[in-house]
Design a protein around this nucleic acid. Structure first.
Lengths: 187, 187
DNA sequence: GTCTATACACAGATAGAC
DNA sequence: GTCTATCTGTGTATAGAC
């Protein structure tokens, strides 16, 4: 993979998370990366190819983030706290959201491949969250866990909704405000 | 307001909530309503005018929904349950989201007026939710309420995030799954 | 109030030179 | 691998007839 290809993926991810799938063009990427837009087609023949590659790269990167969290923290509470921090830092200054959130709005304009990749990503997150709530319930570091799978579904919706709130208000502290109750349950 | 204008507003709202602000065009509306796209400019000179009108109409309609809920239910728990049902039914078959959610992704492409209207809408919802959690805490119909304002912020994020989940999976029951924990707190 | 016709910008994409 | 040049479709918006 050449530097140009990586630069394109990075630029496309940022653009998608800032402006949505429909909100960025090859012209934007070309200006950002410093090549002509025709050259992008050499690396990604169609925008659908680029979009799928961005999603896959994002999935791998986030899986690594989860692995790093698991390696760095042992209790469920500490792991969940670290995940919340990861979503928080992904906000930037309140202008970005998770790739899944950005794509779900443009759902009808993206290909089946990308939709499937979005489903895979969410499934991975739900499984990680379920395991983390189960662990936090066992070690007593997450309060009031009755149903870990239900907690996981609610937590993912809360994390994504909090990102939306921060973006809508262009204020990352709106994320913190939405997560305050959840955070207060972590020991 | 003529029938055509109302039809345009209705069509535009549905399109925005289904495909996002960047995802529908005057051509789409024209085909849906049954006039030519040039005729739309007679009612809404620019797309920004149409978008603002859709947002304002939505705000008024949702405020009326909240009023109807307050008139029909006395306890905090029953009112919150009714609001959850309202968000649930707004999903359609999993293809639509709340207008705020749909617009927040396209935030950089919409005008200042519309952004301000989005902020007004969210503020109204937060105030209604805070009052409802306060009431539910007082009458004992919502369990474990420590901070009504914090509950309101978390609940709004959860509702919006649950809509995203349902849309991503094209399955309205994903909304129910994300709200299950919250619903179990209502007496 | 709606139409046809059109202007203008920009989208994604391709051909072919270098 | 990148470029210039170009194609085709579509977007918003306008002019002027009916």
């Amino acid at each position: 993979m050449t530097d140009t290809k990586t630069a394109l993926l990075r630029s496309a991810e940022r653009a998608a998370r800032t402006k949505g799938f429909d909100g960025f063009s090859y012209a934007d990427l070309a200006a950002d990366v410093g090549i002509r837009k025709a050259s992008i087609h050499h690396h990604f023949p169609a925008k659908a190819d680029l979009t799928l590659a961005v999603m896959q790269r994002y999935h791998v990167a986030f899986a690594e983030t989860c692995d790093r969290i698991d390696a760095a923290h042992t209790t469920g509470g500490a792991r969940l706290h670290a995940l919340i921090a990861a979503y928080r830092s992904a906000l930037g200054n309140g202008e970005m959201v998770c790739l899944c959130v950005a794509f779900s709005i443009s759902r009808d304009h993206i290909t089946t491949d990308v939709r499937a990749a979005m489903g895979d990503f969410r499934q991975m997150m739900l499984e990680w969250l379920t395991a983390t709530f189960t662990r936090g319930n066992g070690d007593g570091t997450i309060a009031q866990v009755a149903d870990p799978a239900a907690e996981a579904r609610a937590a993912l919706a809360l994390l994504e909704g909090a990102q939306l709130a921060a973006r809508t208000q262009a204020d990352p502290t709106a994320f913190d405000a939405a997560l305050a109750l959840m955070s207060s349950r972590l020991g």
